[in-house]
Design a protein around this nucleic acid. Structure first.
Lengths: 148, 148
DNA sequence: TAAATTTAGTAGTTACGACTACTAAATTAG
DNA sequence: CTAATTTAGTAGTCGTAACTACTAAATTTA
């Protein structure tokens, strides 16, 4: 029989990684439920937001550039962008300079949807982070140190 | 043309939710890569760990009880437990009292694998949380407040 | 400049994670 | 006691998320 103990702590709650995971799962669930009312997923929203931000910085945005910016896997990004194109939230046009690349351009419908979605996201975030609002600077700093 | 701005901040990095998501994604990726070497996923590890912890507290553990404890969806939990049974890490026996329920019992092989997996997880956590180690108490407190 | 390497994107696989919908058994209520 | 409701678990779907493997085009280098 196996009697030697397995863990160096008694409860999962003593583990930062476990807590981090639980919190993010809850946040993600809230986000997806809220965004679901407008037929968007969190990932779809994030890529649209990323495209919006990147477009402010540079004239053209390719799928690869967006994936790099959003820290998403390029294969997954490709699939989600196809979905977003089908929904007519953006266009994927062959780049004139590099014929391998797809240039991304948000449509008017996409921008409007993003604007509405952001109001929903903001609302969820306000409620979710209410209990740590006064420590936002500390919290964000800790998270930034973890991303490196 | 749409000129009204969409976001109330300039960079995603100003948003706690976005940071939280990015950090957890990175943590999860590190965990899954490390656990992958022993053919385990993070979710499989978590449910095995949850079963181990719950088994310390109570004589019998059902799938539903484990799902409640781990805060996982019962449908997903059911599938992952079937996978873990196939791998012979645990047994799912019909409960004698409640014939709807499946009683979960970790096998010797499961316990041994969990022990090895935990060493891997511990190692990944030590590296991942290195930069915030001295603030662990603050960080954990913030996360606990977010779970409520 | 031809060959080797890198880059941009797609296809298909495995495993969650959140669903709806379902079966069957247990519990509660009238 | 029987009907209504709740509970435990399974089946199948959709959308990531991380892969391997692939095509084709651009770039490097020998």
């Amino acid at each position: 029989m196996d009697t030697e103990k397995v863990f160096s702590y008694k409860e999962p709650e003593e583990n930062s990684g476990y807590l981090l995971w639980q919190v993010t799962m809850k946040w993600q669930l809230n986000m997806n439920r809220a965004l679901g009312k407008m037929s968007l997923t969190l990932t779809q929203f994030s890529l649209m937001a990323g495209l919006y931000w990147l477009s402010q910085k540079q004239h053209t945005v390719t799928q690869q550039q967006l994936a790099d910016y959003a820290n998403t896997d390029k294969m997954m990004t490709s699939k989600v962008l196809m979905t977003l194109e089908k929904k007519q939230f953006l266009e994927r046009v062959k780049d004139s300079g590099d014929s391998r690349a797809k240039r991304l351009k948000m449509t008017e419908k996409g921008t409007q949807t993003l604007r509405e979605a952001y109001q929903v996201v903001k609302q969820v975030d306000d409620v979710f982070f209410k209990n740590v609002a006064k420590d936002k600077a500390v919290f964000d700093d800790l998270l930034i140190r973890l991303i490196k």
